Computed example of a mutant assay.
Amino acid sequence: MPNLRSIIQDTHRALEVVGIPDARLESEVMVMDVMRMPRQSIFAEQETEVSAQQQEQLATIIQRRLTREPLAYILNHREFYGVNLLVNSDVLIPRPETETMVEHALFMALMGMESRELIIADVGTGSGAIAINLAIHLPAAHIYAIDAFDPTLDVAAYNIRMHNVTDRVTLLKGDLLEPLPQPVDVVVANLPYLPTARIPTLQPEVQWEPVAALDGGPDGLEHIRRLLQQASDSERLKPHGVILLEMDPEQMSDAQTAANQAFPDAEVSMEPDLSGRDRVLVVNLGGTSPDY
Rank of each mutant, 00 (worst) to 15 (best):
E56F: 14
H137Y: 15
D233F: 12
N133Y: 08
M30Y: 05
N190C: 08
E56D: 08
A141Y: 01
P192A: 04
L202F: 10
H104I: 10
R277F: 14
D10N: 13
Q9C: 14
I7G: 00
T166N: 07
L86Q: 02
I146E: 03
E56V: 12
F43S: 07
G128W: 01
H77A: 13
D122M: 10
V283K: 00
P21K: 08
A131V: 03
L25N: 04
P151F: 05
G124A: 09
S275K: 11
M1E: 03
V186S: 02
I146C: 05
A262V: 06
N133R: 09
A109P: 04
T98N: 06
A59L: 14
I136V: 14
L191V: 00
A105M: 03
V165K: 01
G19H: 08
E99P: 03
R24V: 08
L66I: 15
A148N: 03
E209F: 05
E117G: 12
E246R: 01
N260T: 14
N260K: 15
S27E: 03
A131N: 04
S253W: 13
I199D: 02
G241F: 00
D22A: 13
V18S: 11
L227H: 01
S234V: 10
R24K: 14
Q261R: 13
A258R: 04
R226M: 11
I132E: 03
H12M: 13
V50D: 00
K238P: 02
I146F: 06
V268Q: 08
I130R: 02
Y81Q: 01
Q46Y: 12
Q54Y: 10
V91H: 00
V29I: 06
N133F: 11
P94Q: 00
I224E: 02
F107H: 02
R236W: 15
L153D: 03
P218N: 09
M247F: 11
D175T: 12
E56G: 14
L25D: 07
I224D: 04
G241N: 00
D219E: 05
A23D: 00
L172W: 07
N133C: 15
Q251S: 11
G19P: 01
T98G: 04
L221T: 03
V282D: 05
V165R: 05
S275R: 12
N88R: 14
H12K: 15
P179M: 02
F43M: 12
E45T: 13
Q63D: 15
A52E: 09
G286R: 06
P200T: 10
I146R: 04
S275Y: 11
A259I: 10
V87H: 01
S41C: 10
Y193M: 01
Q182M: 15
E235T: 15
L118F: 07
D265K: 15
V91T: 06
I20G: 04
Q53M: 15
R13G: 11
F107Q: 02
A266L: 10
T11D: 03
E56W: 14
H223Y: 12
A157H: 07
S127Y: 00
M1P: 00
L244Q: 01
D233M: 11
R24H: 11
R5A: 09
V17S: 12
V186D: 05
L75N: 02
I120A: 05
D291E: 15
N76V: 12
Q9P: 09
A105E: 00
L25V: 07
Q9I: 13
H223I: 08
V280F: 07
L176M: 01
T170R: 08
